[in-house]
Design a protein around this nucleic acid. Structure first.
Length: 407
DNA sequence: CAGAAACGGTTATGCGAC
DNA sequence: TGAAGTCGCATAACCGTT
């Protein structure tokens, strides 16, 4: 955790007015590692690292005992083991974490249907409509944590605030296994002493730019004229973080999350040289991606190939086709062609990735009439129109040219 | 009729989050 | 010093249309 610690007494002095705080952020503590310890109680109290066991792996999660040695997520495993040779390393078991995540989700939607999942171990809740029935925000948060503890035998931290950004910040500073309320009238007092890196969207690069301009704390940015900030980080980022600096975040809790892309990538134990090997790996990845597409009844219009070389430079190449597909052979041809177009001569390749973008549900996807093939797909489109009309009435769909003012 | 300007899609890259 | 895997979003250059 690189974010500076906030003094605990300061946090305690924030008060208990939760009247405008309708957003909860739930964050499971050291999630993957905790699930592993739960599955194998002999690990309790030990430094446990979840991550790649092969030569080139990184730390995916670590128990707090391991973090005490300075170990954190994304750290190369080799370095982690130098810091703590006695650590127990466990390979990640994604299927198991997904199952626990599903159970967590069931608990969350028993509180409110307005649940936005951010990751397997993290979610926002909008409890505006639940307060009458279930109590004040802090009561709901307290009960929720107890329920997670008793039903899942895992601990969660919860942030309570008036918007998503503040709620997420609150859970971060509540960790581990805490609850933090940021009362609306105390938000500036809480926010301004924090380091700029605590802003959502400010990562390594942006942080460097800000620090070079002498901006270390959120309060420093807040005092700036927006034009100055524009020059430092660019207009888009500036507008975003300037609002956050004043505790303003209008983004709503969004429940329906349809995937916008699906991909798989692999770092190899040893670099690849041979074209035949590379193409075999591309096929393997394509097969995974296509299977996931079909599993979700999705089809893709854009296929993206990613290659990372021995020196860590990374390139991507993509191709958009005129129709949608989830067919392994078709996607493989596109991905392989993207690779061949590179004309690599025995380059040392450490990673290959394949990603499907511009997704559509398959039942609406395959019939895109294009300029290339003006007639293709119209029969199916008409069937779809017929079905929609049966459902919504004949007036529901008509050619654009026939739409008049009173429609 | 040629060219400017606006526009939307594609392609590539980069950043950030967990 | 050695750097995973997945995903979303922003930006910029380029391109063909209008």
């Amino acid at each position: 955790m690189s974010k500076a610690q906030l003094n605990r007494t300061k946090i305690a002095s924030l008060g208990s007015d939760d009247s405008q705080c309708h957003i909860l952020h739930i964050d499971m503590d050291a999630f993957y590692a905790s699930v592993e310890v739960r599955a194998n109680p002999s690990l309790a109290g030990k430094p446990v690292i979840v991550g790649g066991t092969q030569g080139r792996g990184v730390v995916v999660a670590a128990t707090y005992e391991a973090r005490a040695f300075g170990i954190h997520a994304a750290m190369p495993m080799s370095r982690a083991l130098r810091l703590c040779p006695q650590a127990v390393v466990v390979a990640a078991d994604h299927a198991q974490y997904a199952e626990v995540s599903r159970q967590l989700y069931q608990i969350l939607i028993s509180i409110t249907p307005y649940v936005e999942t951010l990751a397997l171990d993290e979610a926002f809740l909008d409890i505006s409509g639940s307060i009458k029935l279930l109590g004040r925000p802090v009561e709901i948060a307290t009960k929720l944590r107890a329920q997670i503890k008793s039903q899942l035998a895992l601990t969660a931290s919860v942030g309570v605030a008036s918007n998503k950004f503040l709620a997420k910040l609150a859970s971060t500073y509540a960790k581990p296994y805490g609850l933090l309320l940021i009362p609306e009238q105390k938000k500036i007092e809480f926010l301004h002493p924090l380091p700029v890196g605590a802003l959502w969207g400010v990562g390594e690069k942006t942080e460097i730019k800000l620090k070079e301009s002498g901006l270390n704390l959120i309060g420093d940015i807040a005092k700036l004229p927006i034009e100055t900030l524009n020059r430092i980080v660019g207009e888009g980022v500036a507008a975003h973080i300037y609002e956050l600096c004043w505790g303003i975040d209008d983004r709503e809790v969004v429940t329906t999350e349809v995937e916008k892309s699906i991909g798989n990538e692999t770092t190899f134990g040893e670099d690849l040289f041979e074209a035949t090997e590379v193409e075999a790996q591309i096929l393997r990845l394509v097969d995974q991606v296509a299977a996931r597409l079909r599993n979700r009844d999705l089809s893709a219009k854009t296929i993206c190939l990613k290659i990372r070389f021995h020196d860590f430079t990374t390139i991507t190449r993509s191709k958009t086709i005129s129709s949608y597909t989830h067919n392994t052979q078709e996607i493989n041809q596109i991905a392989r062609q993207l690779y061949r177009n590179l004309n690599l001569q025995r380059a040392r390749i450490r990673l290959i990735g394949v990603r499907a973008e511009s997704l559509q549900p398959t039942n609406q996807a395959n019939f895109q009439p294009t300029l290339d093939q003006p007639d293709l797909g119209w029969p199916e489109a008409e069937i779809a129109v017929d079905q929609a009309r049966a459902k919504f009435g004949v007036a529901a769909i008509k050619p654009a040219r026939l739409i008049s003012e009173q429609d």
